[in-house]
Design a protein around this nucleic acid. Structure first.
Lengths: 353, 353
DNA sequence: CTGAAAGCGCTAACAG
DNA sequence: CTGTTAGCGCTTTCAG
């Protein structure tokens, strides 16, 4: 198995070195440029020589080096784009990732994906990594803080599309959910079902999505005659644990809210845990912004304002492709609608005290 | 805003072209090699010139071109690795992805991630894409079918590490869950709780994990005196819908099983739906291989054999790093233990008829 | 239809 | 300590 053939390479790895175009040319008895023509499907090569070249390439397991090619090729394209999200592991960004991938694949574009953890410094570092690899464009879920540092790159012609939130300090194509409207729908839903004493649990305050969802909810509540002061509002919850603690304290009070709105899925998880411990989950209405993966399996089923991450990813990728193809229009913001899915938790009426 | 400065480039994008090392050298008044030294942190450059170079680089927004560098550098490393999983969107691969990323980041390695949808042809196409970009190594969740086509690449020195399942037709470092043992634990758990009439729902048969989990379960059942013939076994379920249909039919029978084992999370989801529709979810014991994201929120809580995707990803990445560093040992298979999490559904006793 | 020469941006190998 | 020359593997340009 481990036959130690001649080492010509530098590192510890063995085997013959990878064939180059020159090798193929030599074996086929043609010039290197002819190989290039065949490999790139340029015409004006006689079928006879083309066949010889293909056989030689096959024989040698030739795989053209895209690095070298892109270095000289018109446009210097690497056919690689960068995707920067909060975490490749979270369901929302992961779905965006998949949609982006599917949109790019037919064009032969590969994607360098990386997690930023909503940290501005990490974002800059990851961007640097992408620029060094000369990606053709970047799809970015902006972290809190400014993206102004990207302005020079945009001027230099780097296509940039933002997803989930708008960038700060620059302009760029952006594809995002209709956070405000979605939250307003959630508010209207709870109010319609008779609730007026409502708790609002918000996620990380520095994120635009948190601000917009809160604003959307409060506005709708306000126009229904419920002032912000009448609501129990908790903000800046960083995860399920914090959300659970906050909910535990609020719902243990003497006159607890009859309904909750959670602005993000992780917050929802925490709140659900708290409600279950208090055995209040069947009597307290709950609407979640962001669906949970199997929200229909909960009891009651989770009523959620669902986003459409696939649509967001696909639209962002299409925007990037358009820019790559030379579109010069003003930056465009695309708002993707949300959808309220009523499955039970949001339709619980207030106690008929 | 959209100031159309001088176009020197080729594509539609404007702006001054990106600075090269030569530009930096010229501005700093030094040779290009000196810039190279400073940029790469080689010593033997006077602090004075180094400072001048750095200032010039800063001034020009210089970002070294890693493509060009890697083309000539010893080892020709691109500092990029490929990750091929069933889908970047599924929770399990997504968690592996994150762990891999975290392990590579400190070394400056970027990751090209791509979905293969468990299709052998797609796998080959994605591998080709990676080879063309000259990745330093590949982490692969093998699709059904043979990976023999990778043998030549391995000989040529391409480090390959498999995750989740073993490759077929070649040998390679592999990191995977202890499927058999995990399934055996599930069987023992149900049997201990008094069940003998058990349904076994398996996922896609061509996947190793399905075979191993089924085998592990049956063996354990066998040694407890339960023959396979006494079990209701359904195999090759491709998704929640199929699983739901299968479960609906089996549990509607006159003498339904008192317990279920599901070999994969998507199967679990389908079975749970079916049980709920039959209102049998509180009386039928269920153990799932693969946890659901919020299994603790179900009622009863989901008893699951949980895998450790982060550990799998991290270990796979470490294996790859070791190979990149020249380790020449025989391919190593690392088995990651699973953990049974009892949350209620698996502890339901059989009806005391 | 085909090939030789130049050069992409950088690093290796040598000079000074 | 610093610079010059070649050359990575490919595409361009321009001659045959």
């Amino acid at each position: 198995m481990t036959s130690l053939s001649i080492r010509s390479g530098q590192s510890a790895s063995g085997g013959p070195r990878r064939a180059t175009m020159r090798d193929v040319a030599a074996l086929a008895g043609v010039g290197i440029k002819t190989v290039s023509r065949v490999v790139n499907g340029e015409r004006d090569v006689s079928e006879a020589t083309a066949a010889r070249v293909r056989r030689a390439a096959e024989e040698l397991d030739f795989v053209p080096d895209l690095r070298a090619g892109s270095l000289r090729r018109n446009g210097r394209r690497t056919d690689t784009i960068g995707l920067l999200v909060s975490s490749v592991e979270n369901p929302f960004p992961a779905a965006v990732h998949r949609a982006v991938e599917d949109e790019f694949r037919p064009r032969g574009l590969a994607v360098l994906a990386s997690s930023v953890d909503d940290d501005p410094e990490i974002e800059r570092a990851r961007v640097a990594t992408l620029l060094g690899r000369r990606v053709d464009g970047i799809i970015l879920a902006p972290a809190p803080g400014s993206q102004e540092y990207l302005h020079a790159e945009q001027e230099r012609g780097l296509p940039l599309v933002c997803v989930d939130r708008k960038p700060f300090g620059i302009e760029a194509d952006t594809v995002m959910s209709d956070n405000k409207a979605g939250a307003a729908v959630a508010a209207a839903h709870l109010i319609t079902h008779g609730h007026r004493r409502i708790a609002v649990f918000g996620h990380r305050k520095s994120l635009q999505t948190a601000q917009q969802r809160k604003a959307g909810f409060l506005e709708e509540a306000g126009s229904a005659g419920i002032a912000a002061a009448q609501l129990s509002i908790v903000e800046d919850l960083r995860g399920p644990e914090q959300a659970e603690a906050a909910a535990a304290s609020i719902f243990a009070s003497l006159v607890p809210p009859t309904a909750v709105f959670c602005s993000q899925n992780l917050v929802t998880v925490g709140v659900l845990r708290a409600l279950r411990k208090l055995n209040a989950h069947r009597t307290t209405a709950l609407v979640s912004f962001d669906d949970l993966d199997f929200g229909e399996l909960l009891e009651p089923g989770l009523t959620a304002v669902a986003q459409d991450p696939h649509a967001i990813g696909a639209l962002a990728a299409q925007r990037l492709l358009a820019r790559l193809d030379g579109e010069e229009a003003e930056p465009l913001t695309t708002i993707v609608p949300t959808r309220l899915i009523a499955r039970g938790s949001g339709e619980i009426p207030p106690p008929s005290t």
